[in-house]
């Protein structure tokens, strides 16, 4: 054995969050950003993604299974912690809590988002600009999407920081500090991309 079950699961959890889930997230946000040009550009890009060969296999192995594992094991990790930010209000301890809170929000958001788009597509609805514009016509859904997407983006960016620590890439305090700045830069950049996209549908 390469280590205990906990050790392997924790490492796989950390890896899957970046590869492939993180890469998929960035790709998904970038493709959706076509919506800021016009409806036609978005529809063309969405159609290209949906007509990729071996689509169901790509979805299963790059998206569904990794997210399922990451979510189930992530919940287990979340409920194992006894958060103590009131007593120890240090920056990293707050990030530790926010990482768990955004993880749970992201899971709820993704479940709803997949139901509204991918599952509806499986039932024969067409996923296009109008579908999203229709969903985002309600102010509640705009708020829900903003919270959900920003949670996902934060969870990815801060998760990238812990991925670098968990695999032993950033060891020294200085490298971990620099990586905090870099990953928060990733958060800001992706937040701009995703908020612009959401407002493009309104």
């Amino acid at each position: 054995m390469a280590g205990s079950r906990d050790f392997i699961n924790r490492r796989i959890h950390s890896l899957l969050g970046v590869i492939p889930i993180g890469i998929f997230l960035v790709q998904h946000l970038v493709v959706n950003h076509f919506a800021t040009r016009d409806a036609e550009a978005f529809n063309k890009a969405a159609h290209f993604m949906e007509s990729l060969p071996f689509r169901i296999f790509l979805e299963t192995f790059v998206i569904y299974l990794p997210i399922l594992f990451h979510a189930v094991y992530g919940l287990y990790i979340t409920f194992q912690a006894k958060n103590n930010v009131t007593r120890y209000g240090y920056f990293r301890n707050m990030m530790f809590l926010v990482q768990r809170v955004t993880g749970v929000i992201t899971l709820i958001f993704i479940a709803w988002h997949v139901w509204e788009t991918r599952v509806q597509a499986a039932f024969g609805q067409e996923v296009n600009f109008d579908m999203m514009a229709d969903i985002l016509s309600s102010p509640f859904m705009v708020a829900f999407y903003l919270v959900g997407v920003l949670s996902a983006v934060f969870h990815f960016a801060n998760g990238l920081w812990s991925f670098f620590v968990s695999w032993g890439l950033t060891v020294s305090p200085r490298s971990q500090k620099i990586s905090t700045y870099v990953t928060m830069g990733v958060f800001v950049a992706l937040a701009i991309v995703s908020v612009r996209t959401i407002f493009a549908f309104i």
């Binding site: 390469a2 240090y90 301890n93 060891v171 020294s172 305090p173």
Partner: peptide
């Protein structure tokens, strides 16, 4: 690498802030 070992760390880094001897625990 066994159960209850290194992998259970969640990087809250409270330890290094709290250690009375200033040991670089998170490093």
């Amino acid at each position: 690498m066994d159960d209850g070992g290194l992998a259970e760390c969640g990087n809250s880094q409270n330890c290094v802030q709290s250690c009375p001897k200033g040991i670089p625990l998170t490093t």
